[in-house]
């Protein structure tokens, strides 16, 4: 009974060996190629920028949404959570594809703008379209994470804050916000991670010319067939992600110990 899962675990370990075999194979050449070529560095910078923008927008929209839901009545709450979860069950590709039609030069947004006499904007194949697509796909995760941490919160703390003379804004800033920080952190993880590595959203909404790190990896593997360079890039990406996750977690812990002291 213990042997079977053990064998499976060995098999499991093997599936990740795929990664290890290549790390043994490559020389530092590939990393040199990446860091000496400004094009790749630009791509890396653009990917990080898009991912950070996406994460910030998700927090700015997602936090109030989660806050309002957590403040509503018990039955309404569940309905809202369901309404926000349902889109995530529908295929991401399908939902991203829908935006192509909406954002087109003669699409529905430009038609509405036209009614008000605003000349059509080019939206498809821009930064805006890519960030919009990412926000659209990933924001439910942010909302749900923050919502969970807000509902777990002890509400008597807010009452205590107002009893001690804090106004609504103060008690939000000094009690609610710090206590919901773990939710924001795990929300950031769930948004930033897929946003950095995403490759079909930039491909569909950014057009063929729009290159992010995910699309570079994809083309290295499926078009130009330089697997070694492709793995080097993905290793760099994984490293960046791990470092940023580590940093956000550390910030989280630092804040927690601070509130602990208080």
């Amino acid at each position: 009974m213990i042997l079977v899962p053990m064998l499976l675990i060995v098999l499991y370990a093997f599936t990740r060996k795929g990664n290890d075999v290549t790390t043994f194979l490559f020389t530092l050449e590939n990393f040199k190629k990446f860091f000496s070529d400004t094009i790749f560095l630009e791509v890396l910078w653009r990917s990080l920028r898009v991912a950070i923008e996406t994460t910030i927008v998700c927090i700015l929209i997602g936090y109030p949404a989660a806050y309002f839901i957590s403040k509503s009545q018990e039955e309404v709450k569940m309905r809202w959570v369901l309404l926000i979860t349902i889109p995530t069950w529908i295929n991401m590709l399908v939902r991203t594809y829908a935006w192509i039609g909406i954002l087109q030069d003669d699409g529905i947004i430009n038609s509405i703008l036209g009614v008000f006499g605003i000349s059509p904007l080019t939206m498809l194949h821009t930064d805006f379209a890519v960030v919009l697509g990412m926000v659209y796909n990933f924001i439910p995760f942010m909302i749900l994470q923050i919502y969970t941490s807000l509902t777990k919160m002890d509400h008597s703390l807010i009452e205590a804050a107002s009893d001690l003379g804090a106004n609504k804004f103060e008690s939000f800033l000094r009690v609610t916000l710090p206590l919901s920080l773990p939710g924001i952190i795990s929300g950031i993880t769930l948004v930033f991670l897929p946003a950095v590595s995403s490759f079909f959203i930039p491909k569909l909404l950014g057009g063929g010319q729009y290159v992010l790190i995910g699309t570079v990896i994809e083309s290295q593997f499926l078009t130009s067939g330089d697997w070694n360079f492709g793995s080097a890039i993905s290793l760099i990406m994984a490293l960046i992600i791990m470092v940023s996750m580590y940093l956000t977690r550390k910030v989280d812990r630092g804040e927690q110990s601070e509130t602990g002291v208080l």
């Binding site: 675990i9 499991y12 370990a13 093997f14 599936t15 990740r16 060996k17 795929g18 990664n19 075999v21 290549t22 991670l193 897929p194 950095v196 590595s197 490759f199 995910g214 990896i217 994809e218 593997f221 697997w227 492709g230 793995s231 993905s234 990406m237 994984a238 992600i241 996750m245």
Partner: peptide, 24 residues
């Protein structure tokens, strides 16, 4: 094993994808 188990969840999907591709 639990650490290993979390790897594919924490890793970007594209990394898991190329790992599997090379494994196969």
């Amino acid at each position: 094993v639990e650490q290993v188990n979390e790897l594919p969840i924490m890793n970007p999907e594209i990394v898991t994808a190329i790992g599997l591709l090379m494994f196969f």
